[in-house]
Design a protein around this nucleic acid. Structure first.
Ligand SMILES: [Mn+2]
Ligand SMILES: [Mn+2]
Ligand SMILES: [Zn+2]
Ligand SMILES: [Zn+2]
Lengths: 126, 126
DNA sequence: CCGTTAATGCAACTAAGTTGCAAATATATA
DNA sequence: TATATATTTGCAACTTAGTTGCATTAACGG
């Protein structure tokens, strides 16, 4: 299930991600676009954009899903093994440009991971 | 909000955690005890056990909360900064006895983290 | 055993996300 | 440009994890 048609809704959602560099939660996106796009459509487009390698997603502190732009991903290959940072003060969520060394665990075959850091962002800690 | 009284329900829940060493999800616990304890009570007891330093919790792959025994925690101090491992084949979730080196990020004050690894457990990969 | 207070069950609710289906619209082709 | 067709959308209804208020029950110290 890839994105086939550049519809009005797809453009509106992509536009949101072009306007900022931080991640956006499904809830925020639905709220922000609620007069223009139905929430079902938002979920479906986000699914497709992730599948296509345009966005990647992860879970925030409360289990809500967040989406952010991919950098070098495609439909066939995803390379989003980086941590994310959620500010407990303002709620902002960012991708971190940090290589995490995947720990090797005896007798376990690790295929992927989610690493979420919490604390205060630059703006909130100064 | 600490545990004050050792009620029948509290004992039943603690018993579940004594019987196994891996984590248990709220959903599994509610299902398993559904003939003996109301789900509201399960949620409330888990809250209190976590607050008291008996259990710690974290989110699994699908955003469902999991609980596991604490090792050296108390009401005043929690020391559960370790990764967790979820088997994508059998669904089992474990605490990993691995020290993770908290990355230092410029201009950000990191206070805690959640690190969830995914893959195949010992039993499922052999 | 009794009185106090914490704990419980229940029903109703909230909120994120999903599903089926009919209507609308993007796009390729003529 | 008009038409055909497959994709996308909106809507309403649903699912599921977790929460809340309140009346009832039960733990436990005296
Ligand atoms: Mn990211
Ligand atoms: Mn753990
Ligand atoms: Zn902040
Ligand atoms: Zn397994």
């Amino acid at each position: 299930m890839e994105i086939i048609r550049k519809t009005k809704s797809v453009k509106l959602i992509l536009n949101q991600f072009e306007q900022r560099d931080s991640a956006i939660s499904t809830v925020d996106l639905i709220e922000k676009l609620n007069s223009e796009i139905n929430k079902t459509t938002v979920y479906r487009i986000l699914d497709k954009l992730e599948y296509s390698g345009v966005l990647h997603s992860f879970l925030g502190l409360n289990g809500i899903r967040w989406y952010a732009k991919c950098k070098n991903c495609s439909t066939s290959h995803h390379s989003d093994l980086h941590p994310h940072f959620q500010c407990t003060s303002c709620g902002k969520v960012d991708c971190l440009d940090i290589k995490i060394t995947m720990p090797t665990i005896p007798n376990r075959e690790v295929t992927s991971s989610q690493f979420l850091l919490q604390g205060k962002c630059e703006r909130c800690s100064s």
